[in-house]
């Protein structure tokens, strides 16, 4: 289960809307209670470093990700996972998402239609990156 605080959620939605009609991406930092109770308190908006059409692909800029990792250490938080948007598409975990994911992390996908948030879902990949299971997601209702 991943719970997203209002402040983190605002950052995610704002980043997804700004990036529209391109995909946005970022890193989620927060706290862990056991393995499965995760609370994202900080969302770090990152640059989409994909060198092509960014309407349907993203690569989290690795230097932005390194900075987010450093922030997590400085603030005694964990990197819990990542988020990205699907412009004018459902919030599902695509084959491309799965192939380029890492196990353990929570992956939040935001559906953005016409520049407005239309849905969100969360997924976790298995060790072999062959399957992703839905993970419970709690976020503030706007």
């Amino acid at each position: 289960m991943l719970t997203i605080t209002p402040e983190a959620w605002r950052t995610m939605v704002a980043h997804a809307r700004e990036a529209y009609p391109r995909e946005c991406c970022g890193v989620l930092l927060g706290t862990l209670a056991g393995e499965d109770e995760r609370t994202a308190t900080v969302a770090v908006a990152c640059r989409n470093a994909y060198e092509g059409e960014r309407r349907d692909r993203f690569v989290i800029d690795p230097s932005d990700q390194l900075a987010a990792q450093k922030r997590a250490r400085a603030e005694d938080l964990e990197v819990l996972g990542f988020f990205h948007s699907h412009p004018d598409e459902e919030a599902y975990f695509s084959a491309t998402d799965l192939a380029h994911s890492w196990p353990w992390y929570s992956n939040v996908v935001l559906s953005v239609r016409g520049g407005a948030l239309a849905g969100a879902a969360c997924f976790r990949a298995d060790e072999a990156r062959t399957r992703a299971e839905p993970e419970g997601l709690a976020y503030p209702v706007e």
Binding site: E23, R57, P62, A95, H100
Partner: peptide, 11 residues
């Protein structure tokens, strides 16, 4: 060690 994270709705 920084995990490379990518994806997207495109194939």
């Amino acid at each position: 060690i920084v995990p490379s994270i990518a994806g997207g709705r495109g194939a």
